[in-house]
């Protein structure tokens, strides 16, 4: 982020802080809901997964339709968030979903997380922060799903 961009973020966030905070929080919530629903949906499809069966399941299972709706909502919310903040800033904040997804997958899906995996997630968060701090972020366009 260069000086001009940084100034732009500060100016934009001071104009609409609550709207931006709400949008960022919603982005984390939608990201988390998408991933947890996606995993639940996959658990409901047959064991012998092939690309064709996967595509058919994605088109017909209600859980997958919900994943699609959540991704659509995330896309619309993301466009609003980017109206109020730089991509690097918003992307770094919403990487908190790595923490919320891991936490909810343990709490609600009964998954286990080894201590070194937790350390791995901390390293990833730090890495995302460094990427967000770097000079050029134009190509990192969030595609909705992740």
């Amino acid at each position: 982020m260069d000086r001009t961009d940084k100034g732009k973020v500060t100016a934009m966030t001071s104009k609409a802080p609550w709207k931006l905070i709400f949008g960022l929080a919603l982005a984390v919530v939608l990201d988390t809901a998408t991933q947890i629903t996606w995993k639940s949906a996959v658990s409901d499809v047959p064991d012998q997964l092939t690309p064709t069966l996967t595509a058919q399941a994605m088109l017909h299972q209600p859980f997958f339709l919900l994943v699609g709706l959540l991704m659509g909502g995330q896309f619309l919310n993301w466009m609003t968030v980017l109206d109020h903040a730089d991509l690097s800033y918003a992307h770094a904040i919403t990487s908190l979903s790595y923490v919320t997804v891991a936490t909810l997958s343990v709490l609600y899906l009964g998954e286990t997380l080894a201590p070194l995996q937790t350390l791995g997630i901390v390293l990833i968060l730090t890495g995302v922060w460094f990427v967000g701090k770097s000079g050029r972020v134009g190509t990192l366009v969030k595609a909705g799903a992740r």
Partner: peptide, 14 residues
């Protein structure tokens, strides 16, 4: 989606 069949989401998402 295919990878989620074999991995926990706490692994696949990170």
């Amino acid at each position: 989606t295919w990878s989620l069949r074999y991995l926990d989401v706490s692994t696949a998402f990170p």
